[in-house]
Design a protein around this nucleic acid. Structure first.
Lengths: 227, 227, 227, 227
DNA sequence: CACTAATCGAGACGGTACGTCTTGTCTTAAT
DNA sequence: ATTAAGACAAGACGTACCGTCTCGATTAGTG
């Protein structure tokens, strides 16, 4: 939510709530002048929505995706099950929205920029290594990956919310480097970003250790050693 | 698994059934030399074992991992539930064994070897593109990925059964090339294999299209254009 | 109910809505002379009230009492749920009012009067037999009986609306007969009415067949054979 | 259950479990001589069955039929919901069986026999009056009547379990009297029983008071005053 | 050959969660 | 103040599976 001043009273679409419920009515039910109405009935409760996302995040972190249940979310959020089914429709959808709204802080923020591309990436990977090895974080990653693969519809949503940002961040760094020192990179920036991001993510998915040696090899591939 | 040249019907444990219940059998179910060791009671039914794996493969292909149930497998295989729980203990274990025994033919065999590395990889990727776009195959891939992420214990098993072979295949090709024409590759062979495999797998996982353009970019990264 | 000559649209309470919320209304919804009394706000919609009763009757006939829901009534009547809760408060109340207002024509009208008591009763019972055997009617009877037993508060209301009329009809016939030919009846008229009505209703409730033999036996009990 | 030495291990049919699950298998699954088998798998748990009936009776007495839920029964009996659905299939069925097995002691046992028919019936009715006026008993009666009308299939079951015994008891008494003093009764014994039973039951159903006056009137109808 | 022991298919068991349905309340804008 | 609309918390519905258990029936080895 954060800085999103969504107007109250209007039914809103979530990331996954593709079929918008808003219908324009040309006319009221009994007589009167044609009015353009946006909705009738009680508006969606923003309070409940946030409670659901928050509860989901909490349960996910300490319990994993498999043990996460709609009933559990509802109970923990103090919300009726129907409210969840009305607006999300599946466990994965809720997780995706919680991710998108920042309730699940995935430990994969963009690398810093000190001007030294290789150094920055290296720092970033080493930081990730530390973060990922925390059991809480590893459970969260597992959970996100599960949400991903459990429902094909959410796959693109997660790709946008989680994968894309990483790729974009890397892409921007490679792009800037390429602009400053043309010809130094082995391939087009966006592609380097993908190769590096993919290697990293697959590594994380399979819970393989991010050794310093592996990191150096990865860097060798995508960015030339400083002369 | 790996270097376990398990003779059909011989004493075996499953991949993931860590706490093996059967250590040594006196005799094969059908044929083989009698080995006298302590063991009493009815021996495990190989027939049932195969029926389970076969049923699992079938149900997985048309239904996906989420809809796969132990009860469904048992019913479809004409087997008691207890038999499954006795020998496997979890859904993922069965899937992994079915995969390992080749009942689930993942469409990611190794590239051919015509001497032209770039050309071979290109052909391989184009073949994959065609295969992956078949709905049946895409369902299977989704299923495998789900089995992977649903249970962390199986993660390494699948990595070995599915990911490793691809990586190894690529690694061998890159290694051979490197030996023949040292210095031509941008990085160490095993690492090129990983970068390429990871990019590919992530692409497949997220069901993103394998365009010809993307393929060429990927090749540019890992193998030099023929002069 | 009974002696409540309720003018359409005038101030009314329902049969069971004990705590009447509306005492006096200034004016009818449609037409009628303005009566100046304290009352503010939108008046109750007679249209909605009738729509509810009609919808209830319809749903009850094809679906039975168990499948009747407040939501269903509201939707079918094009009325808000709150309107029903405001004015009736329970499913049974609506059914009772629908019954009282004649929307549910129970097939138990009074017997004709041709002067021949036994013959009249016989004709009446034979007519009932035919009616009751129609599946639609049997469903309605079941529904009414269910409404009866489901809520103890409505029990007396239904007794008044459904049972009493029958009993009264019979009582009047027996009474007239007794006045005309004193001493011919086996018991006091009101009691004969009850015995006969009760036998009949229990028979109907348990969906037992009204055979000609049974009818004759019943008549033998309560009214002497014509000499 | 009580004195019913139902053989253990065989699936049993309840009153309402019309479709027996027993199938005769001519032959075992894999080879062997033809065997006539009565069942396979774990036998039905008599313990669970009794727990369900007992819990139902308890909940019914203090709570009524409306508030009785399958979930409540299951929880109270320490039984899975599926066990109830497997063997009964509806709330009413359970209630009917509980009634049939004597867990719900309906307060309508047969009248005593002191040789004085009218006196016995009078005592019986006065006893009922006292019993019925107890709030616990009135709740139970309501509950039984609700179970009756809520499901048409159970109607005949309840008729057999509850109504029939009363009718039979009365019938026997009237029959004996008729045999001893022919011509004294106003109608055939079975019919007197029905008229009297019906009057009584309808009275009870509608929770109308059993006044002494009403009792005497009823008796006047069906049994002659002692000379 | 009998006996012992482990497995087999079958299916009932106590549970948990599902996704749907309904209840009775509440909150809008419109009348 | 009442209306239609419809979201809300609550909780029961009936179903589907879980993983365990308890049957009778196999099917080997051991005595």
């Amino acid at each position: 939510m954060r800085d999103d001043p969504r107007a109250r009273g209007g039914p809103r679409t979530t990331i996954v709530d593709v079929t918008s419920r808003i219908e324009i009515r040309g006319r009221d039910h009994e007589g009167g002048t044609p009015v353009s109405v946006e909705h009738r009935g009680r508006p969606r409760s923003e309070k409940s929505r946030l409670a659901v996302l928050k509860a989901t995040a909490g349960l996910l972190v300490d319990g994993g995706y498999e043990d996460l249940t709609i009933e559990g979310i509802a109970a923990s959020a103090g919300v009726g099950k129907q409210t969840i089914y009305r607006w999300w429709g599946s466990k994965a959808s809720v997780v995706v929205e919680a991710l998108a709204e920042g309730y699940l802080q995935a430990p994969l923020a963009a690398p810093a920029d000190t001007g030294d591309l290789r150094g920055d990436l290296r720092e970033w990977l080493l930081g990730l290594k530390a973060e990922i090895e925390a059991p809480e974080m590893s459970r969260l990653l597992q959970a996100i990956m599960s949400a991903l693969t459990s429902a094909s519809e959410t796959s693109s949503a997660i790709h946008e919310a989680l994968i894309q940002p990483i790729m974009s961040g890397l892409d921007a760094r490679f792009g800037a480097h390429d602009a400053a020192r043309p010809g130094e990179l082995a391939a087009k920036p966006d592609f380097l970003a993908e190769a590096m991001g993919a290697s990293l993510l697959l590594h994380v998915m399979f819970a393989r250790p991010l050794t310093a040696e592996w990191i150096d090899q990865l860097l060798d591939l995508v960015v030339p050693r400083s002369p």
